[in-house]
Design a protein around this nucleic acid. Structure first.
Lengths: 179, 179
DNA sequence: TATTTATATATCAAACTGATATATGCGTAA
DNA sequence: TTACGCATATATCAGTTTGATATATAAATA
């Protein structure tokens, strides 16, 4: 149990809130966890199978509206495994921004192209910010209703503050390249 | 040439500034690019060999102070390849923060452990911030000396602003969990 | 009615990490 | 002076993950 795989823990974390299919897990990751985590089907489905073999989740195969699907539920052993991971110190926080990479080497290609990358980045961030602001507003409203809401709020607040800083930086960055 | 590997472009970017050994490339990535990119020896050395085979870099094997080493230099074809990548739109900017993942699932384990993760995060950021502030100060001073300095400044400025926002968030986050 | 989108799962080559292995030089503390 | 640890320098590989592709059905939409 010493070498917890990240994917194991993300999936068990989501299943600790509610039982889900692999497809639904992917959707949760792509919406709620989007701005600080990602995962592909190619890791989700094999991980679910190995979690099942290790007794950390149980499968329930059903047919819903003519479509076959498998609903996964966390077991007590799975909850224990998740808790053991949660108390371990963080091993890696990683920012991997291709935009910054292209900016760093920007002198090779000039300001026009580089400003273009900054504008693309700005557009993307400004498009995603309202979702984070909405989440913060909503979570602050329902914060007292359930303990978990405060924890969700922490991450949404992080995203909101950071994205606003990104937008401020875009303004400064454009000025530096134009001036 | 349509499917540029990221590692190819990072290495060619660094070599566009100066000729380097694989070991020195790793050092540059771990210091200058640290807060927005990373790479392991396991990808650097194989990539250098494939770049050599593709004629994008040249090898110079020398013996320095009794130690054998290989110095890599970018070719004209390599510069062209780099430029072609620089104009392409960014495909992925990714934040992958285990800290936020543990916070999101924090209700499973409680505020004490979660505040511990925030404190660890705060300590790490406060430790790295002075390096970024120093880089910004230095680059602003020598900005006019060389065109490339403005581009380095953009990335250092990004890091400085974002890290300061992280520290602000830590204060808020602790209050939310304590209150 | 036809086409697109959403649901649902599976697979795999290619890329990358993290660990491990090997070997030399250089500084320093016993 | 000699033993130890650290920096330099390269190489390899199992395990993990991505991104693409494939398959099939239901629901929505044009």
């Amino acid at each position: 149990m010493a070498n917890e795989k990240k994917m194991d823990c993300v999936i068990l974390g989501l299943l600790s809130h509610e039982s889900l299919t692999g497809y639904e897990i992917k959707k949760r990751i792509d919406t709620t966890l989007k701005f600080f985590w990602s995962a592909s089907f190619g890791s989700i489905y094999p991980t679910l199978n190995s979690l099942d073999q290790d007794g950390l989740v149980t499968k329930l195969e059903i047919t819903d509206k003519g479509r076959d699907k498998v609903i996964y539920t966390i077991t007590d052993a799975g909850r224990e495994y998740l808790k053991q991971w949660l108390v371990l110190p963080v091993t890696k926080d990683e920012l991997r921004y291709e935009t910054l990479l292209k900016l760093f080497f920007g002198s090779e290609i000039g300001p026009k192209v580089t400003i273009g990358h900054i504008l693309d980045f700005e557009t993307k961030i400004k498009c995603e910010l309202p979702y984070l602001e909405g989440a913060v507003r909503e979570l602050k409203k329902i914060q007292k209703e359930e303990e978990a809401h405060s924890y969700y709020l922490l991450t949404a607040l992080f995203g909101e503050k950071v994205y606003k800083t990104y937008i401020e930086w875009c303004e400064e960055a454009k000025k530096i390249l134009e001036g």
